[in-house]
């Protein structure tokens, strides 16, 4: 599903060049549940952004779902994000002025699907059917993250990418979110790549990839 070969990413900050990724080789099979761990600054988020087609690698090749995407235009990358990738962020990133349902519908909008029932169904699946008309500010952190998960999965993308999805939650809500994600993974055969600091979270994944200074330092199957 995901195949990275010798991916590098260099940012230019003023006159200084900062190489964040220094040649990553990584494959993720369809339906796999993978955790990415590593200290801050190790390049985890940059790697996730490249996998999610939000960013282009400086060099290397990247096949997503059998298609080379490292050199696509920004419009083509947007189309891939719209159809194939669902993001779950640490800070939820819901639009505050829209209702929970409208936020979930946004996930459909750019995929070109016009079906409110799918959004209602996705909200039901994450257990928030009765909160459809609440705004994010009227929801708890755990509930907001559920809405975000519903938004990511409503268009049935093959890949869901989560960047510390439990990082801003208390341990109880975090546990609930994690259970939800792993359930969805099993239920729908989604490929799920998740960044986490929490070893307990990582242990519930099938594989743990550790990054340090822009390189994969270890891979371990749980």
């Amino acid at each position: 599903m995901i195949k990275l070969q010798q991916i590098t990413k260099t940012y230019t900050l003023g006159k200084r060049e900062l190489q964040v990724l220094k040649g990553i080789d990584l494959s993720v099979e369809q339906g796999e549940l993978v955790a990415i761990m590593g200290p801050s600054g190790s390049g985890k988020t940059t790697l996730l952004n490249i996998i999610g087609c939000l960013d282009r690698p400086t060099s290397g090749s990247y096949h997503l779902d059998g298609k080379e995407v490292s050199s696509l235009s920004s419009a083509e990358l947007a189309a891939i994000r719209a159809k194939k990738v669902g993001f779950v962020f640490q800070t939820f990133n819901l639009l505050p002025r829209l209702s929970a349902l409208a936020n979930v519908e946004l996930g459909l909008k750019y995929a070109g699907i016009d079906d409110r029932d799918l959004a209602v169904e996705a909200l039901r699946r994450v257990g928030l059917a009765d909160r459809a008309n609440h705004r994010p500010t009227e929801l708890s952190g755990g509930e907001q993250q559920r809405v975000a998960i519903a938004r990511a999965l409503v268009k049935r993308p093959p890949v869901i990418l989560a960047d510390e999805p439990t990082g801003n939650l208390d341990s109880k809500s975090g546990e609930e979110i994690l259970s939800l994600l792993t359930e969805l993974h099993q239920e729908q055969g989604i490929t799920l790549v998740m960044i986490t600091h929490d070893p307990d979270v990582a242990r519930r994944c099938q594989r743990i990839i550790r990054l340090k200074d822009g390189l994969v330092v270890s891979e371990e199957r749980t």
């Binding site: 939000l54 947007a78 189309a79 994000r81 990738v85 996930g107 750019y110 995929a111």
Partner: peptide
């Protein structure tokens, strides 16, 4: 700005 980032992550094209 953040909203725009979110929409782009969801697959919004520039012209959207």
């Amino acid at each position: 700005t953040r909203e725009i980032g979110i929409l782009k992550a969801l697959g919004a094209r520039e012209r959207d």
